[in-house]
Write a protein that binds this DNA or RNA. Sequence first.
DNA 1: TCACATTTAATTGTGCGCGATTGAATGCGG
DNA 2: CCGCATTCAATCGCGCACAATTAAATGTGA
Lengths: 152, 152
Amino acid sequence: MAKKQAADAPLLLGNQICFAIYSTAHAFNRVYKPLLDRLGLTYPQYLVMLVLWEHDGVPVKDIGERLFLDSGTLTPLLKRLEAAQLIKRTRDTADERQVLIALTPQGQSLREKARTVPQSILAASACSIAELSAMKNDLVALRDRLNAVVGE
Amino acid sequence: MAKKQAADAPLLLGNQICFAIYSTAHAFNRVYKPLLDRLGLTYPQYLVMLVLWEHDGVPVKDIGERLFLDSGTLTPLLKRLEAAQLIKRTRDTADERQVLIALTPQGQSLREKARTVPQSILAASACSIAELSAMKNDLVALRDRLNAVVGE
DNA sequence: TCACATTTAATTGTGCGCGATTGAATGCGG
DNA sequence: CCGCATTCAATCGCGCACAATTAAATGTGA
């Protein structure tokens, strides 16, 4: 009823979808933390492992495109995964600009221990798979539109 | 059809809602960046300003509860906002454990320059307000369930 | 072939985000 | 009133995230 309130509505924290996404991302992180601690991984490291479990032996560039991360983020992260004996980094002999990331046997076997993680997350979300899947699709569509704007 | 694929589905990056949220949050950040650069703010700083534009003179604790951030994050961030002359930090005389955060005149007037930000974000999302509002509500509900799990 | 642009990863600097700890101020139970 | 737990902000350490720069390798056109 107050016109003042309507004019201010866009600047109210509770009205911003972006804060909803931002705060939900952090909430997920807090749920993941104890689960990933058992694997010795951080969440971004877990994402890299997910990529490698799908496609082993890929260049840093590919991982970056998949996760929307650049070398400034990935290079130190990958060095930590290498120090943890989960991956090996080797220059591509065919194109020495590229560094290929390959799983070690430990990195491969970690996949089995990681299988229980998604179920725990699903349980914590207290949501049906259908609901989550629908939200996921909406989010991905939104993300792709946002990235299209940034990429001009 | 392959049973193998079904068993692996939960570990596929593309199937994880959490990665959808994570990557959408980063996409939002990239869209916000040039807009907030004009205000001299980072996104978390912008969130703090949103809180203060709603309730001026609040303790650090309140800001933290509103944004789900702790003093380890907020203390240095608030010092930077103070260095930028947007806020003032003063010990509460009634309870000297608390630090009250108040807007400076510059901090208050920045609100006017910030009014155009939400429209730009809305335009970049290429989404109706109704759609965004529905997603926001779903996300907040999900976030609150996740936080409830973490809080035991 | 050779200058020049492009691609790729690494590096540097700044700012979160959070767990863990510290220390001061307050509240409270006896 | 006094000891003790609690609350609150600050501090420290680590790991992202990203802009900007660097340097090496590759691709390209004259």
